[in-house]
Amino acid sequence: MSFDLRLSIVGSGTIGLSFAALHLSHPSKQVQVTIYDPRPDLKEYIETTLPGYLSDSPNEIQLSSLFSSSRLVIASSLTSAVSSADIVQEQGPEKVAFKQDLWSQIEAAAPENALFWSSTSGIPASVQGRKMRDPSRLLVVHPFNPPHIMLILEIVPPGGDAEGSAESVARTLDYWRSLGRNPVVLKEEITGFVANRLSFALLREAIHLVNEGVVSAEEVDRVVEESMGPRWAVKGPFWSYHAGGGSGGLRGFLDKIGDTIQACWDDAGNVNLGRNDPGQQSPSANWQEALCDQVDKAYGRLTEGDLRERDQKTRQLLQITRK
């Protein structure tokens, strides 16, 4: 069977298999996906886990037919996984030394024109690629979980140099747009990228409000779910506050309640995870335990059914807001 594109997934965790399902559901290309992971139970794990992601595909895809047609291949080594790949997408452990060694091995074994993507949550491409001969080939392609459903992807060239990686960036954008995704190219490498920084800023203030006894963790979730959550799913914060200013737009909004905004910023929480001094008892230990206990009591251990319900509702919401 001939394929339009050969794509290798290196690392088969939640993100890796979610991406594999997305690639296999490409509406206009015959994509062969090869998965490599050193875990000894890889085939059994894929057979158990991947169907859950494939069930979200708009086209019914059977795992057995993917294997029999060689659209899905399990590689026995890193070299065999990437040796004929058009794209290599990595989801390995978030450790700098590991990724640096891995990318030098991939570069040595993969074709010279293959695209290199890392789904890292925060390690810049310029750091990951320091042992590569041509580090400009490596791009961060940072998803928002779960990537087989969420539309946004953050493309981050090494050093934020989109011009130096122009061809790789252009080919990457073309591919993701053909899958109906909306990639954003960041102009600068920055810790956590954009989506994480925004969500972690909200998380920090949420923790502060719970620690101060203003509100419970469960109530914070309800406030977000029933206020800015649905509003920002339709339009983002700048559009929303621009609309909130009426005829004056964002300028009018800032003029009207700028004092309140500044007062909230001045009073914002300054919680600290306390990970910078491993030799001492973390000052955050008590609040972390208390908060985690509160969340455990509210929600218990989440099941596959809970995650499936979240994914189904997220997909339904995106279908409505992106029409």
Rank of each mutant, 00 (worst) to 15 (best):
R181M: 13
Q128M: 12
E47G: 02
V96P: 04
T191R: 09
V271K: 14
P146W: 03
S28K: 05
I257C: 12
L173D: 08
D134E: 10
L151V: 13
E309G: 03
R308H: 06
L179Q: 08
S126N: 05
A162D: 14
R204M: 09
G249F: 11
G92S: 11
P93Y: 05
S80M: 05
D161P: 11
Q105K: 14
K256N: 13
K99I: 00
A285M: 05
G249M: 09
S28W: 08
I261A: 13
K256P: 03
L63I: 07
L179N: 04
N211D: 14
Y241R: 06
A290W: 13
D259E: 15
L72T: 03
Q100V: 04
S68E: 08
I320G: 09
P111L: 00
S247N: 14
D174I: 04
E163D: 12
Q89H: 08
T49N: 03
W117G: 00
A75Q: 02
L291T: 02
F193Q: 14
Y53E: 00
S284P: 04
L317N: 02
L22R: 03
P146G: 04
M1E: 10
A166G: 14
P93A: 06
A21Q: 10
L302V: 06
L63R: 03
V224S: 03
A263P: 07
M150K: 11
S80E: 07
D161W: 10
I257K: 10
W117V: 03
A125M: 01
W265Y: 15
Q91A: 13
S65A: 12
D311E: 03
D277E: 06
I106D: 04
A162N: 12
G159N: 12
P237C: 10
